[in-house]
Write a protein that binds this DNA or RNA. Sequence first.
DNA 1: CGTCACGTTGACGGGAGTCAAAAGTTGTGG
DNA 2: CCACAACTTTTGACTCCCGTCAACGTGACG
Lengths: 241, 241
Amino acid sequence: MRMKVLANMPLFAGLTEEQLDGIDNRMISLSWAEGERLYGAGESADHLYVVAAGQVKAVQSTRDGQNTVVDVLAPGDFFGAISGRGGLGYAETVDALVTTCALRMDTDAFRQVLVEYPQVALRVLDTVSASLAAARSTASRHAAATVAQRVATTLLGLADRFGQPGASGNGMLIQLPLTRADLAGMTGSTPESVSRAMSRFREEGVIDSGRRWTAILDREALLSEAAGTSAEPVTDASAAN
Amino acid sequence: MRMKVLANMPLFAGLTEEQLDGIDNRMISLSWAEGERLYGAGESADHLYVVAAGQVKAVQSTRDGQNTVVDVLAPGDFFGAISGRGGLGYAETVDALVTTCALRMDTDAFRQVLVEYPQVALRVLDTVSASLAAARSTASRHAAATVAQRVATTLLGLADRFGQPGASGNGMLIQLPLTRADLAGMTGSTPESVSRAMSRFREEGVIDSGRRWTAILDREALLSEAAGTSAEPVTDASAAN
DNA sequence: CGTCACGTTGACGGGAGTCAAAAGTTGTGG
DNA sequence: CCACAACTTTTGACTCCCGTCAACGTGACG
C-alpha cells in the first residue's frame, strides 16, 4: 500500500522498486482526524512529511494574532523540515483539513536520501523553487490588488488544485473545509471582508458558496474579477515597465 | 581572483581546490554598471548567477505596473535559473544597484554540479528553503502591519545585511542606491507613503535619510516602531522618551 | 431543542492610495 | 563657476477601501 503511494509520487518518480523499498523502510505512516494538529510552530523541526491521503493547511502566525495560510497540501506533496533551519523549530503550524494520512521520515534520513539519489534532490529543489516563486508572486499581487481581486485569485488557484467538475455545466466544486477565516488568511484580509466579496460574487452569479464549500459557476467572470476589471476582459498587450 | 571568490562562498565551502577549479572552469565572469539590467522577466531562463562584488535587486512586476522588490543580493548570493522552471522564462527582472561583478554558469552545468557534489545541493536547498521561509514570513507580516511598521522592519532587515557602522555612536548606515520607489516595492506600498513614514521617523530622531541613503540612529526605537507601538512598551527599565 | 461555531450584514472611522505641485539633488554643458 | 534640466523626494488635500466592532441569521451536532 505505502509502496504504491511512494511509487506514484512525482518526488520519487524514476526510482527502482528496491530503491523505493529502501526509502519506505525509513518512513512511518501516521494519520490524523479533521482538525487535528500535525505539528505546531516552534516545535523541534526534525521530520519530513509526505501527504498520502487527505489535505492539510500550513499556517504562519504573527505575535499579534494574525494567521496567514501559507499553503494547502494535497496527496503527493511534502512539507516539514527539509533543512535543519539552524536549530530553529518549525516556522508554521500544520493542521489536518480532513482525515489525513501521511508518511513521516527523520530529516536526517531524508537528507541522506537526497545525497544518495541526486535526481530526487533536484526534484525537491525544483519543488521548493516553485514554491518560492509562487510565494513571491502571491506577495506581488497582494501588494496592489483589492480584497475582491485577491479572493477571486485565491479561489481560482484552489479550483485548479482541488476543484472537482461540478454537478452542472462548467461549474467547479471546491470541497475543502476552509472557513472564511482561512480564506482571510490566504488573502491577507479578514473574514468579514472575504464574506463581503464572496457575497457580491454570489449575487452576480459568479460563484455559489455555503458553509465550508465553494463552487465556481462562471470561471471567465471570476478571472476578470481577479484581473481587476469586473467588466470587459479585453485581451490587450501588457505594457512592460 | 575568481577562485578566491568561489572559495569564500558558503555555497561551495568544503570543496577541494581541484573541485573548485572544476566549477570555476564552467563559469564566466561578467560585470554591469549601476542601473544596468542583468536579465529581464520572461527572458529564457538558463543561467545561474553568483554575485562576486556589488549588489543587485530582483524585481517582480505585475501587469498593472506594480513593482515588488523581492530580494536584494550581495556578494556570495546566487540567483537566476536554479531549476528549469518548466520552460518558463525568468520570473523576475534583475538590475544592478551599483557596479556589479558576477559569475555565470549554464543551468544545466549547475545541475550537473549539484549531482556531483550532493553537499552543495543540500546547501542550495537550505538557502532556497530559507528564502521561502523569509518570503512567507514577510507576507505574513505585510498582511496586518501598517506601512510605517513595514518600512521599519524593512530598514532593520537592510541594516542587518548591508549596514555599516555609522559615523557616530550606534548609528548604522545603509548605503544602497534604493529609491523611495524601491522601498515602496519592498514594503508593498507607494513612494509617497514610504516618504511619509520616513519623514516621521526622521522627525522623531529615529533615522536620518537623504537621496538614496539611510542611517539608523536609534535601533531600539525603530524596533518598537516595527513592533507596532511607537511608544516605549519595553519590558522594563528603558527611560521614557 | 438548545448550544455553539460559522457566516452575513450594517455602521463607522482611519490608514493609505491617488492626484497634484513644490522643493531639494545630482549631473551636465556652456 | 554658474545655470539648467531631469530626477527624486516631500508635502498637502481628497477619497475610498477595508479593518473593526457589533448584531443578527444559519447550519451542524449532540
